[in-house]
Nucleic acid binder design. Structure first.
Lengths: 162, 162
DNA sequence: CTTCAAGACTTGAAAGTTAAACTAAATCGG
DNA sequence: CCGATTTAGTTTAACTTTCAAGTCTTGAAG
C-alpha cells in the first residue's frame, strides 16, 4: 500500500453518485415488491429465474449461481418460499446429492401477478429518466466495470429476463 | 397498470448489467472492509461521515441523513460502534431530545487505518476500469437517475469524501 | 399554562444474511 | 476397489436490518 492515491473531486462525486443511485434504486425496487407482492427483491429473482428455466426447475447450485446467492442464503430463502407454497423441493433422480427447486403453479401465479408492477417500476426508475443513447452508453460502461469485477463471466449477463 | 410495456433486449441487458455491477461492486467493497478492518461498509460510512463533520460529531438525525440510514438502524449500529469504543454518545446541550454521536480518538485512528485500503479498492474496482471520459459521462448518467430517484436532493451528493 | 401533535431517539422481536461447521454422495488416483 | 477430495446442500449461531411500538422532549394552539 504505497502512497494511496486519493480520489479527486470528480472521482469523489462519481463514487458518491454511484453509491446513492444504486442504493436508492434498489430500495425503490424492494419497496415496490414488498408492498405489492410481499416479498423482497431477492425472492422475486428466485421465482423469476425458476420460471425461465426448462421445467421451471433448477438444482440449488444452478439456482444459486443465476441469482448470485450463497448456498446458505439460497437454502434459507427456499425454505421460506417452500413454506409459502411457491417452490417445491425434489430429489435429483441420478445425482442424489442434488436437490431440485421447482416453481409450483401457485408460485408461478404469484410471479405473473407481480411481474408487471415490477417491470413498470424498473422502467420508471431506470429507463424513463434516460435517453436511449444514454442508456446504451451506460450499458457499455457497466460492461467495462463488470469485465473488471468478474473477468470469468460468472454473472449470467447474457440477454435474459428481469 | 394498463399494458405493462415489457423491456426490450437492450433494456433487459442494461438492467441486468446494472444489477450485477452494483451487487458485485458493493460486495467487493464490503469484503475488503470486513477483511481488513472488521466492519461492514455501512459502519465505515458512519465513521467517515463523523470524521468530516465539525467537531467530529453529529446528532443522530443528522448522521442518519448523511449515511442514509433509518433512525433505528443507525441506533443499533451506533450501539455496536460504541461497544467497540469508536463512537461516544453525548446529550445535546440545549435540545434534550437530541443525542450527539461523536467519533472517539480511537475511532478516528481506526478510520485513518482503514481509509487507504478502502480508497484503493474503490479505485481498483470503479476507476481503473474506466477512461476519464467514461467516468465523466457515467457521472452524468448517474446524476440523471438521481434526479428522478430523489428530486428533492435529500442525498448529500455534493463534493464530499468517501 | 395546559394540552397535544410532532420530533428525536431507543427498544425488542422478526426477517434476512453471513460464516463456519457438518452430512452425505460422487469422483478421482492409485 | 479404496481412501482422499470434491461437490451439493443443510444447519446453527452470530450479526445486520427492518418493523412496530414506546419514551421523553419541544413547540404550537387554545
Amino acid at each position: 500500500m504505497t502512497e494511496p492515491r486519493w480520489l479527486d473531486a470528480d472521482e469523489q462525486e462519481t463514487w458518491r453518485a454511484f453509491l446513492w443511485t444504486s442504493r436508492l434504486l434498489n430500495e425503490a425496487l424492494d419497496r415496490q415488491l414488498q408492498r405489492d407482492s410481499g416479498m423482497p427483491h431477492a425472492y422475486y429473482m428466485i421465482l423469476a429465474m425458476l420460471s425461465e428455466s426448462p421445467g421451471r426447475a433448477l438444482t440449488m447450485s444452478e439456482l444459486a449461481e443465476v441469482v448470485h446467492s450463497s448456498p446458505s442464503r439460497l437454502s434459507h430463502a427456499v425454505n421460506r418460499l417452500e413454506e409459502a407454497g411457491w417452490v417445491r423441493r425434489t430429489k435429483h433422480a441420478t445425482d442424489r446429492r442434488a436437490t431440485i427447486a421447482e416453481l409450483t403453479d401457485e408460485g408461478y401465479a404469484v410471479l405473473v401477478e407481480a411481474a408487471p408492477g415490477h417491470v413498470a417500476e424498473v422502467r420508471r426508475r431506470l429507463f424513463d429518466p434516460l435517453t436511449r443513447e444514454q442508456m446504451l452508453e451506460f450499458r457499455e460502461t457497466l460492461h467495462a466495470l463488470l469485465e473488471a469485477l468478474d473477468p470469468d463471466h460468472t454473472a449470467p449477463c447474457a440477454p435474459d429476463s428481469s
